[in-house]
Design a binder for these strands. Sequence first.
DNA 1: CTAGGGTTAG
Length: 615
Amino acid sequence: MLWRRSLTTKLDFFFTSPSKFQFSTLVHNQESSFQPLPLTKEAFAEALQSCRSHTHQLKQIHGLLLTTGLSIKNSLLTCLLSNLTVLGNMSYARKLFDDMHKPRIFLWNTLIKGYSKNRIFVEAVLVYREMRLVGVRPDSFTFPFVVKACGELPEKWIGSGVHAHVVKFGLEFVAMVRTELMLMYVGFGELVLADLLFQSMFERDLVSWNALIASLVQNGHASKALALFRQMSIAGVKPDAATIVSVFSGCGQLGCLEIGEEIYRVARKEGIDCNIIVENARLDMYVKCGNADKARNLFEKMSKRNHISWSTMILGYAINGESEKALALFSRMQKDDVEPNNVTYLGVLSACSHAGLVNEGRAYFDYMTQSDDKNIRPRKEHYACMVDLLGRSGHLEEAYKFINSMPIEPDYGVWGALLGACAIHKNVEMGQHVADRIFQLSPDIGSYHVLMSNMYAAAGRWDYVDKVRLKMRKKGVKKVAACSSVECKGEFHVFYGGDRSHPQSLLIYEKLDQLLKDMRSIGYIPKTNSVFHDVETEEKEATVSAHSEKLAIAFCLVNIQPEFPIRVMKNLRICDDCHTFSKYVSKLTMREIIIRDKIRFHHFRNGLCSCKDFW
DNA sequence: CTAGGGTTAG
């Protein structure tokens, strides 16, 4: 009976919060004291199952397990180890593992899975190596997690090495192993290899299709994902909600509304359109396609809404230039007792930023700072948003002071927001200073070099422009090529600056010439001050007049019926001249032009833009 | 004695 009493003491913790944790079997054992039951394996198993939230309780169970003298079964250990990894206590999990005598394969697997799930990828792969060194043969449960971990390592050769192991152990055709390999290669940008693995799969289930589609979208290969979706329909595989969510997200990325609507019809036919995640994804698709009306209609008739729905809609209004509606929706959200989170506040702050609502922005930010809720306290992104708001509206000094008063270390994103503002307000001096800070933090981000170069060019400082170019070449910094894309009759067309590769190229340039001529007659003057080099005016005009968005607009004028708006997606920010150009075109042709640039939409109608020229 | 896929922002 002595050991019974000491156990009872050790079991005290079980009674600390009985409502939360039900350790029924163990508790029952202790309470029915007139006939003490032995602490059985089943009792421990049940206790472990129900006790997932506190490490110290797991530790006590472990201790208890050792004192009972029960032979410690592998199943109990696996459960204990797995619970520890779920709690994220990997150091204790490792200790437990190290105390084991010749751990069996599934214990190794559980440990690897733990490291992988806790995003300690190097360790996951190291454990795999260790396991090989002691001669344990990996099985089909080992590799999914090792491969996933390899996908997160910058050293791609490790992934290839593990792939070789997969082949060596004859597991390359196991569906889940192969799925993970595919995902790894998509992450590496090795799309051909990923596709090869996929196409030569024996058993492709829905999840492997979904996994590949989703990872393509998440890695920015949305058009490849849509192609795969098409292949899936041809193969006769019915999509489920997860598929639809990914392809909606892909459509949003590309800005193809027509294809998105087509997919919605498929979803409705399959009866998978009313799930809240699917609806949120569709909402986001409308927002990213610049159709705030469709987004609002959907939002209003959604059967259920969560904070993601609200945040998406708020941000949707913000980037489409309807800031008042964004802020109104935010207060409605609060009245509806839906808790905003930090993403919601990003939407709110960017609404203020796009509309130049400085005082409102300050007020929201102060509210965030003073909030008791950790989820609402401002993070780097919010600081960047505030810097953008202050700087863009001309309060450069205040923005600078704001950065210096930050309680967290400003990153290049925060400084970058200020650099953008310096460029808008042509403050070369501060721009130089800010650029120095940025290049100390991360020297090889092309867009900031380009911003500096443009700033110098606008100020006529060609000597500095050359310096920047030289520096970029020396450091191997590449600037991202500007490109614009357009959806037309279910096809996707991409244009680069000065591009003549499109089959309709002649027609497009003809249209463009005509437009420019007509526009000049009603007062359009090309603005060429953002052109890189100190060249003759004529040459500069030629460069500017072939910017990708101009080509895309001309293409739409040739190909898209007048009753439809022209929608162009651009990967960088729109330049001053293209903005003016689009205003003139909208007036001249009576067409609605919608341009999505890197951070927001411009809706041009009758010579005016929804951004009110503030961007 | 354990496994793979889905929504906002960055």
